[in-house]
């Protein structure tokens, strides 16, 4: 098992208020690592550090290192990093253009498409991989803003797949979705791990137990426990983990 991402002594603060405290964690290639924990436990901060979205925030400060395939991500070109580590946000954010253009937007900007004839193939493949193709193949030119929430979120997945990343970060991807849409997104996640490495932050403990290969429990900026998902849910080592997954707090 190869480590895809390795985090060493990562501490993160906003305005001198620290939300992550010397975190050490690894993500294994082609696994789904779910991260659970109550609000303010630093899950999302951790996720947004992995593709340096936090660098947009001026109050953000960090110590420690993160390696992607042994390359330090803080020495990498920001655009290259984000091309390799895609991110899906909590709320679906389709760009204000058609479904087709949403998919083709990033590959075009990144210079991944050389010939116009390749575009259709890329769009179809990305939509198929996000299991959205059958629903939208007849209306690729209609606005992405008119789709349902679940479809929008799968469009956002397809958009990431179109730039062919190595890691995909999911930041509570189903928090605004109904159970059926949630099931569809989870289905595509499990399918995606064949090709990609996935880190999933979720408020939904059940979701972590359904899709995660390993699960990590964060509390107040600390990693309390990380283990194989079934092991962590059946026999957690730490008292706090047990309290959280059985719903005694959080």
């Amino acid at each position: 098992m190869v480590d895809k991402i390795k985090v060493e002594n990562l501490s993160c603060c906003y305005n001198k208020k620290c939300v992550l405290d010397s975190l050490n964690i690894n993500v294994i290639q082609n696994e789904i690592l779910s991260i659970i924990g109550p609000a303010n436990s630093g899950k999302t901060t951790f996720l947004r550090t992995l593709n340096r979205m936090n660098d947009l925030d001026v109050t953000y400060l960090r110590k420690g290192e993160v390696y992607l395939d042994n390359d330090n991500i803080f020495n990498m070109n920001m655009e290259n990093l984000r091309k390799r580590v895609g991110m899906l946000f909590a709320m679906p954010i389709p760009l204000p253009m058609s479904i087709y253009e949403n998919i083709i937007y990033a590959p075009k900007r990144l210079g991944l498409i050389l010939k116009k004839s390749e575009q259709d193939a890329i769009v179809e493949q990305a939509l198929r991989d996000a299991s959205l193709w059958n629903e939208v193949k007849d209306r690729l030119d209609s606005s992405a803003m008119k789709m349902s929430g679940g479809q929008q979120q799968r469009l956002c997945i397809a958009r990431i797949l179109a730039i062919n990343p190595e890691v995909i970060l999911f930041d509570e991807p189903c928090s605004g979705l109904d159970p059926i849409s949630t099931a569809k997104v989870e289905e595509s996640m499990i399918e995606l791990k064949q090709k990609y490495t996935i880190v999933l932050v979720t408020n939904n403990v059940k979701q972590a137990s359904r899709v995660g290969d390993r699960t990590a429990f964060f509390l107040m900026g600390n990693l309390i426990e990380i283990d194989k998902t079934d092991k962590l849910f059946i026999s957690p080592k730490e008292r706090q983990t047990e309290d959280y997954i059985t719903g005694r707090f959080g």
Partner: peptide, 21 residues
């Protein structure tokens, strides 16, 4: 602001985000 974030998260540069979004 979320449009900018979505675009940047795809590895699109800041200027391209401004220019195209």
């Amino acid at each position: 602001y979320s449009f900018r974030e979505a675009s940047l998260s795809l590895g699109v540069s800041r200027w391209q985000t401004i220019r195209h979004i």
